[in-house]
Amino acid sequence: MSGWRIPGSRVIERQTIGNAKGANVDVYVAGVDIGSTMTKVVVHSGTILAAVIGPTGPEHRRTAYKVILEALEKAKISLEDLTYVVATGYGRLNVPFADKQMTEITCHARGVSSIFPNVRTAIDIGGQDSKGIKIDKGKVINFVMNDKCAAGTGRFLEVIAEALGVRVEEMGQLSLKAKSVPKISNTCTVFAEQEVISWLAMETKVEDILAGIHDAIATRVHGMAQRVKIEKEVVVTGGCAKNVGLVKALEGKIGYSVLVPPEPLLTGAIGAALIGEDIARQAIDKGTPVRRAERRLSEVTFFDEAASRGNRS
């Protein structure tokens, strides 16, 4: 399996991740964050040994297995070396080799706090949802979440990027060139797309429209996060945190600058790994064996697949 990569995956160099400090014990733990769009794996032992990001796709049970194999290979350890695995994200229940499942809210808070210890508010804008998390001393004290509407999520950006014929990755930089910011009044993705098309018809510049779109998302996300009362320091995470235009628009609404982790996709997986490390350490300190779930690192098959194979043989 050496040199083996899954298509579309990306190994994150350690120095770019930031200093996510955990307990200094000689245990290997992994955090697996299966988001709606991307799967993130972090292998940790005192410091991050490896981090891999791959697309989730429709078969996330299989993806989780492949991404963790890649991360283990990168960390140069085997699965048997792992003391504990915590799964998070919306696909957390589909990680058969995880010892524990935690929600991404708790894991994000832990991960963000490890990088920015003074964080009070984390705003996570992911592929299909966005959330505001109020944090006190690394613990969640309140949260708010939007998971029913594409507005204010990465999906919204994807739809608009397609309508404007630009790549999602370049939206942020492009929007910074805007001379004026048109008001996008619809926050419904479908209607906003129509609105964008009508702005195009009026020969509005693409960068201006992009700035308008970022402003619309920022307004929405800010309004939601304000329900937990945004306080300094504010950290923005999730795939959309990579969009510099959106982050700037959000700063405009909040009124001061926000922090973005070096790799904003990874905070959930980092948090999951650190929570796993806490559990392992508590057990070790007490001298009790670490309670594990029955581990099954095998490629998950789907019921219909297994059935059809059975029929053939």
Partner: peptide
Amino acid sequence: TRVQAFLE
């Protein structure tokens, strides 16, 4: 997810 996060 919301209910579980609340309990956590």
